[in-house]
């Protein structure tokens, strides 16, 4: 097996397992996101791969060779933290050059250019904005050309607009350099934007590993689906699910149907009815909280400028892309 391979990895803090038997392969050149709520053990798993947490059980290996006896600094794995952890007593250039042999000015310049900070070599860390700091941290981590880059929530400390822009830049930098990477995040948009494959974790276990699109269309369990943002679940054979079955063109069975935000659309030709419970607006579109008989309160999308008041009965159409059938 080439690349990173985790076999039944267990990490314990005292008696409590933070990571509980995780197996995962990361092929060379690919980017895998570990996605999960805070406290699910994703950061502990990342630290175990880096060699910062001892393994209680299982193995971490690279290109088939176990890393059990290899200390952190000999693993050749880069590490990037949420708040950069830049060395305040060094300049930008000094930070990027830290992992490089002496006289690597050309390589430092090359990396600063890659992250869009050409000419920043002599700037002090204190003069940088939050986004610039994370770019320097990325350049520093990429500088020694690590065989694997581990990113621990690298964008979480930034504001939303910056985060979305940097996610794109991060993906570009990883692809340009052909870096194999494991990326920890609790933000699914970030995971989907950066990673080739997404591994969903909860309570120390891996729930599902898939490409972003597959993960969205076929969440393996109700737990994965709710973490991805599916907000309501109905048995496929219940009477209330009939219009949804028609939209998906599936027959009734024991499976469960998951509804994401926008599974119902207000104002299209009505196949169902709901009572308005509240209205809000996000980026111009109306989000209408509607109570649908037999399903519960869900978020339906409405056209720009729609006006409803609480208690109105509205007609609802169905958007099949926001529905998923769960086997379990």
């Amino acid at each position: 097996m080439n690349g990173l391979s985790l076999q039944d990895v267990v990490v314990r803090y005292g008696a409590v397992p933070a990571v509980d038997g995780v197996s995962l392969d990361v092929a060379p050149g690919s980017v895998v996101a570990l996605l999960g709520p805070s406290g699910c053990g994703k950061s502990s798993l990342l630290r175990a791969v880096a060699g910062l947490e001892p393994l209680a059980e299982g193995t971490v290996s690279w290109d088939g060779a176990s890393l059990a006896g290899v200390p952190v600094h000999r693993r050749g794995f880069g590490l990037m933290f949420q708040d950069g952890q830049l060395f305040a007593h060094r300049t930008v250039g000094g930070n990027v050059a830290y992992g490089l042999p002496a006289r690597s000015a050309a390589r430092v310049a090359e990396l600063l250019e890659l992250v869009g900070l050409s000419g920043y070599e002599d700037r002090g860390i204190a003069t940088l904005s939050g986004g610039e700091r994370q770019r320097v941290a990325l350049a520093r981590a990429l500088a020694p050309a690590p065989r694997l880059l581990l990113l621990d929530e690298p964008l979480s400390a930034l504001d939303r607009a910056l985060r979305e822009r940097l996610a794109v830049d991060l993906r570009a930098a990883l692809v340009t350099t052909g870096t194999t990477a494991v990326f920890v995040t609790h933000d699914q948009d970030e995971a989907f934007a950066v990673a080739d494959r997404v591994a969903v974790m909860a309570a120390g276990r891996l729930l599902q590993v898939d490409a972003p699109a597959d993960l969205w269309v076929r969440p393996a369990t109700r737990e994965v689906a709710s973490f991805l943002g599916y907000e309501a679940f109905v048995p496929l054979d219940s009477p209330a699910a009939a219009p949804l079955r028609d939209a998906l063109d599936v027959s009734p069975s024991g499976a469960t149907l998951a509804l994401a935000e926008g599974a119902f659309v207000v104002g299209r030709t009505g196949v169902a009815k709901g009572t308005v419970r509240g209205v809000s607006s996000r980026r111009g579109r109306s989000e209408v909280r509607v109570d649908v008989d037999g399903i519960g309160v869900v978020t339906a999308l409405g056209p720009v400028g729609g006006r409803w008041t609480v208690g109105d009965i509205v007609e609802l159409g169905v958007e099949p892309d926001a529905l998923a059938v769960l086997d379990a």
């Binding site: 880096a50 910062l52 200390p71 952190v72 600094h73 000999r74 693993r75 050749g76 794995f77 880069g78 590490l79 990037m80 933290f81 952890q85 830049l86 060395f87 305040a88 007593h89 830290y98 992992g99 941290a137 520093r140 981590a141 500088a143 020694p144 690590p146 581990l150």
Partner: peptide, 27 residues
């Protein structure tokens, strides 16, 4: 002191002693 700065140095190839000398000690 946040130990992650030292860990970042370790991941960049610094031995425990080098990381102490070049990162923790200056802090």
């Amino acid at each position: 002191l946040d130990s992650r700065a030292e860990q970042a140095a370790r991941a960049l190839g610094a031995s425990p002693w080098t990381a102490f000398r070049t990162v923790t000690l200056p802090q």
